[in-house]
């Protein structure tokens, strides 16, 4: 399946601090060397992606749920100051019949992040599910 346009993603220290604080981390520890990003930090890539950088259109926020998330680091994690290039593609699409949720449409989006030398630094795989009905109303 075709990939969206690549996008630039500079790793910013202020965003890392904000992300560490928002995930209950000890901000002072992440200021020490070696400075790197937390394991799920690449979720902020969405702030760098405009429409042409997305492999699938954003779904209806009332019906779109996050089913799974995977990160693979092909070496040490990215660090503040790094300039990554991300590229997203649809890596799988399938449907299943849910119970309360009705027909469930799954989309798997894979984003590869390369450094300026062309080395693959990290891969993020997001699985979303579009539901017909609110699936887990309490």
């Amino acid at each position: 399946m075709t990939a969206a346009e690549p996008f630039a993603m500079p790793i910013e220290l202020g965003k890392v601090r904000e992300f560490v604080a928002g995930t209950l981390g000890d901000v002072a520890r992440w200021e020490e060397e070696p400075r790197v990003v937390p394991p799920t930090f690449l979720a902020v890539a969405r702030l760098w992606q405009r429409g042409e950088h997305r492999a699938a259109p954003p779904g209806d926020p009332a019906r779109l749920l996050h089913a799974g998330q995977r990160y693979v680091f092909h070496g040490p994690p990215p660090a503040p100051g790094d300039e990554l290039t991300g590229r997203q593609r649809v890596s799988d699409q399938y449907t299943r019949n849910g119970r309360k949720g009705g027909l469930l449409e799954f989309t798997e989006l894979t984003t590869d992040f390369h450094d300026p030398s062309g080395r693959l630094v990290a891969t993020a795989v997001t699985t979303t599910v579009m539901t017909q009905n609110a699936p887990e109303g309490r």
Binding site: L24, V36, P38, T40, H66, A67, Q69, Y71, V72
Partner: peptide, 28 residues
């Protein structure tokens, strides 16, 4: 869900070493 995934990821890194996590595979 991604907040709790993030709390988990940040906690794993703080426990095992900030650069130590090579793979994280989560289901909500």
């Amino acid at each position: 869900g991604m907040r709790q995934a993030g709390v988990l990821g940040t906690h794993l890194a703080e426990t095992w070493g900030l650069t130590s996590v090579r793979e994280l595979d989560l289901r909500f």
